[in-house]
Computed example of a mutant assay.
Amino acid sequence: MKTIAVIGTNKAFNGYLFKILDLMKVDLNTFNRYMVKKENNYNYIVVNSNTNIKNIFINGKYCLINMDLADYKNSNIDVFGNIITYGLGNKNTVTVSSIDDKDSFVYCLQRTLFCDDRILEPLEIPVKMKFTNEDELYAAMTGITISLIEGKDANNLYIR
Rank of each mutant, 00 (worst) to 15 (best):
Y86I: 02
D103T: 14
V106C: 01
C108K: 14
T85E: 10
G81E: 15
I84R: 02
V96L: 13
D71A: 04
N74G: 00
I83S: 09
D71R: 06
L109W: 01
N82L: 09
D71Y: 09
N74Q: 12
R111K: 15
N66S: 10
A70K: 06
F105V: 02
T85P: 00
K91L: 13
Y72Q: 08
G89C: 01
S98L: 02
L64D: 06
L109P: 00
D78Q: 10
F80E: 13
T112W: 05
D68T: 00
K91H: 14
K73W: 07
K73H: 09
N66L: 10
I99W: 08
L69V: 04
G87Y: 00
G81T: 13
K73T: 10
L88V: 01
A70H: 04
D103F: 06
S75V: 08
D100H: 02
D101Y: 08
T93Q: 03
R111A: 10
Y62H: 10
D71Q: 09
N82Q: 15
S104N: 03
N90Q: 03
I84N: 05
G81P: 13
D101K: 10
F105D: 06
C108P: 06
N76G: 14
L88N: 05
G87P: 07
N90T: 13
G81H: 10
Y72S: 02
I77W: 01
Y72I: 01
N90E: 11
T112K: 15
F105E: 00
C63W: 10
R111D: 12
N82P: 11
F80M: 12
D71S: 00
T95Q: 05
T112L: 12
G89H: 10
L88R: 10
I83G: 06
C108V: 11
Y72P: 03
D100Q: 04
L69P: 00
D71L: 04
I83C: 01
A70F: 01
L64Q: 01
V94G: 12
A70D: 05
Y107I: 05
N66P: 00
K73G: 09
N92M: 06
V79S: 12
T93L: 11
Y62M: 07
K102C: 01
D100E: 11
I65Y: 09
D78A: 11
K91W: 13
I99Y: 05
L69A: 05
C108I: 01
L109D: 12
L88E: 04
F80V: 12
D101H: 09
V79H: 04
D103L: 09
I99Q: 14
M67K: 11
N76D: 08
C63N: 13
S97Y: 03
T93H: 11
V106W: 00
T85H: 03
N82W: 07
K73Y: 11
T95S: 15
N66Y: 02
S104C: 02
V94F: 13
D71M: 06
C63D: 08
I65P: 01
K102I: 02
N74T: 11
T95C: 14
N82I: 12
D100C: 03
Y107A: 07
Q110F: 10
L64N: 07
T85F: 00
V79N: 02
V94K: 03
N92L: 07
F105C: 11
T85Y: 03
V79M: 11
F80S: 14
I83D: 08
S98Y: 03
Y62T: 08
I65W: 11
G87K: 01
A70Q: 08
T112F: 06
S75F: 08
Y107S: 04
N76V: 02
V94A: 13
M67H: 09
L109T: 00
F105W: 00
S97E: 14
D68W: 08
